[in-house]
Structure formats: structure tokens, C-alpha cells
């Protein structure tokens, strides 16, 4: 076999494998996707919630924009995306979930699509999520836009997300979210 052909094949094979490795590195520096589940209480440190589905890794979300890559810093440093494809009910009763982002003064866009009815005004999934089930076909993103005057602050956003039982007002899960500069980040995607 032609030597050039073998080299071309191996080059692209290794480039692809390297891309997979780089993807993992990126997920540590630019985390975007997290797992959510109820009821999990106040998540102050990483926790694994076990239930009828897969084990759910819940973790406080901290995004450090100083850890962004030079490419991200150059083109789009002031926009942070945090989201999920997985919201599970590991409780024992059906729940109508309302989602609340607390203490947030940053401009934030809610981008939500699911095979589950969602009221964009109240941020509520209006159908009960049954025990052991997850919200089907969920694509849920918050896109935070950081104003220029906040870009140099050490703490840009400190708040979190509450997953609330819309009928009783009970907070089922609280996950802290921080957007900071210059701190090591925890979490994953």
C-alpha cells in the first residue's frame, strides 16, 4: 500500500482521537451541560443521586471565565451558556416543576425545548413529572450575557437554580451557580 495513503489515514485517525481528548479538556474549561434531579435538597458539594434511572451527578456549578481558551476569550468572552438535557424526578410523587434562577441581574435568555409542556412566562413544566421519569426531549439552556462593566469583577454572578414544586412552593433541589474570574472550577458536562 502506498506510504502516503497510510500516513494520511493515520494522521486523520489520530487527529480524530485527539479531538475526542480535547473535547474532554474543553468540558472542564467550558462546562455547559449539567444533570438536574429532584428532590436532592441543597447541593453544596458534588453528590450522586440514585434512583430508578441512571445515577445523577449533581454539583454546584462554577464557571471561571479566566479558564476559557484564547479562542473563546477573543471571540465571545462575555457569553456563558449553562444548561441541561436531563431533569429527573427521583422522588415518590408526581411533581409540577417550576424553575427559578435566583439573584440574577445579568441579562439571561432562556432557550427551552422539550416534548413536555413548558410555560415560558412562569418557567413551569405544566404537566406532572412522574416518579422515576425524566423530561423527554429536553434541551434547556441559559445564555448569560455579561455586561462590560462586570467583566473585571471577581464574582460576576452568584446565585443558583431552584427546582420548585409549583403546587406547594417547596424547593426540591437547589444548585448554586457562580460565574467568576480567577478561581478553579468544579463541575463537568
Amino acid at each position: 500500500m502506498n506510504k502516503k495513503v497510510v500516513i494520511a489515514f493515520l494522521f486523520m485517525f489520530l487527529l480524530t482521537i485527539s479531538t475526542g481528548v480535547y473535547g474532554v479538556i474543553l468540558s472542564n474549561t467550558e462546562p455547559t451541560l449539567f444533570w438536574f434531579a429532584v428532590p436532592a435538597g441543597n447541593i453544596t458539594e458534588p453528590k450522586v443521586l440514585r434512583g430508578p434511572g441512571p445515577p445523577i451527578n449533581l454539583t454546584p456549578i462554577k464557571v471561571d471565565i479566566d479558564r476559557f481558551t484564547p479562542l473563546k476569550k477573543f471571540f465571545n468572552p462575555n457569553v456563558v451558556e449553562i444548561g441541561t438535557h436531563w431533569i429527573y424526578n427521583y422522588g415518590k410523587k408526581p411533581v409540577i416543576l417550576r424553575i427559578e434562577l435566583i439573584n440574577c441581574t445579568l441579562p439571561v435568555k432562556w432557550d427551552v425545548s422539550a416534548n413536555f409542556p413548558f410555560d415560558e412566562k412562569t418557567h413551569t413544566f405544566t404537566k406532572p413529572l412522574m416518579p422515576g421519569q425524566r423530561i423527554d426531549g429536553l434541551v434547556f439552556h441559559w445564555i448569560f450575557e455579561i455586561p462590560p462593566e462586570l467583566m473585571n469583577k471577581p464574582i460576576i454572578y452568584q446565585g443558583g437554580v431552584k427546582l420548585i414544586d409549583a403546587n406547594t412552593g417547596e424547593v426540591l433541589t437547589f444548585i448554586p451557580i457562580e460565574i467568576v474570574r480567577g478561581e478553579l472550577m468544579r463541575g463537568g458536562s
Binding site: K4, V5, A8, F11, M12
Partner: peptide, 20 residues
């Protein structure tokens, strides 16, 4: 212009993709 090299690059990617 060498279709063998183009094919090798293409299927090198595909092999890497499925290996992952």
C-alpha cells in the same frame, strides 16, 4: 487530486470516530 489520499483521510476520520 489523488483520490486514494482523499479517501485515506476521510476513512481515517471515520475509523477514529467509530473507535471513540
Amino acid at each position: 487530486k489523488d483520490t486514494n489520499i482523499t479517501s485515506a483521510l476521510r476513512y481515517g476520520f471515520f475509523a477514529g470516530y467509530i473507535t471513540i
